[in-house]
């Protein structure tokens, strides 16, 4: 790792954050679909959904946050792809800087942008009646898990951004990820689903993450779910990081 890694990453992060501050629409659009889903499910479908929770939005919010992250990380792929097309990427690559700092700047930008979108969503949820008794430790755990989840999906976005042939391709990979929470415990309890769907729902990463965050917000014991959630996030993160770095090396040599 180059001696300039942290300095270079900080400079390039400043550049990306400036991009976001000049087009805040990416943060708004990331927040708007999940907010619309939240309105739809709470005020239209919610009355017919029996979750066991006394307040459906308390049940729903964790899944909505994961959908927001899954759609927000697509912008990382698009930004990376745009950089590569514009020539600025080659300028950076031909300069004496730590080469991986170019990727890390985009990844950290994704954390910041998704964090902002999530703050907007939580504020709307509070207005809609979301309540939690979670203390600082529980909140810290929620933020930690969401950060890991964002990092893991962002590195997948990096792979997509590096290998895409068009802007549409760079952004399009995230649709299946956005869909995953629908087949999980995010909207309805998995117990209501038919056998094979239920088996899938209960054994895919989103359910364990949703369950953990629901439990943390409600101050219930998190049980084994938190370890399954952490294992999924870390596993995806490591795998995606390794593959992204391999794709990057192929790209720059």
């Amino acid at each position: 790792m180059s001696k300039h890694f942290f300095g270079d990453t900080a400079v390039l992060l400043g550049r990306s954050l400036r991009h976001i501050s000049r087009s805040p629409d990416t943060i708004i659009t990331t927040a708007i679909t999940p907010v619309a889903l939240m309105l739809l499910f709470v005020y239209v479908f919610g009355g017919a959904i029996k979750t066991g929770a006394d307040n459906y939005i308390n049940y729903l919010l964790p899944g909505i946050m994961l959908i927001a992250i899954a759609s927000g990380i697509a912008y990382t792929a698009v930004r990376l792809f745009t950089d590569m097309k514009s020539g600025i990427f080659e300028r950076f690559q031909s300069m004496p800087i730590a080469r991986s700092s170019v990727l890390w700047a985009h990844v950290l930008t994704s954390l910041a942008a998704n964090g902002l979108s999530l703050v907007i969503i939580v504020l709307v949820a509070l207005v809609m009646g979301f309540r939690t008794s979670a203390g600082p430790l529980e909140w810290l755990a929620v933020v930690g898990i969401l950060t890991l989840f964002t990092l893991a999906l962002t590195w997948i976005a990096v792979i997509a951004g590096l290998s895409a042939k068009s802007v549409d391709g760079a952004g399009g990979f995230s649709y299946p990820l956005i869909f995953l929470p629908f087949i999980s415990s995010a909207f309805v309890p998995t117990a209501t689903m038919p056998g094979p769907v239920r088996a899938f729902a209960e054994n895919q990463p989103v359910t364990s993450i949703v369950n953990t965050i629901q439990d943390l917000f409600a101050q219930r014991p998190v049980g084994v779910d938190i370890w399954i959630a952490l294992a999924w996030c870390l596993g995806i993160l490591v795998l995606a990081y390794v593959l992204a770095m391999a794709a990057y090396r192929r790209k720059i040599t």
């Binding site: 550049r15 400036r18 991009h19 087009s23 514009s86 020539g87 600025i88 080659e90 300028r91």
Partner: peptide
């Protein structure tokens, strides 16, 4: 390197 296409950041 000054490449074939201006390597400038449009948004900055």
């Amino acid at each position: 390197l000054t490449g074939q296409f201006a390597a400038v950041d449009e948004i900055l």
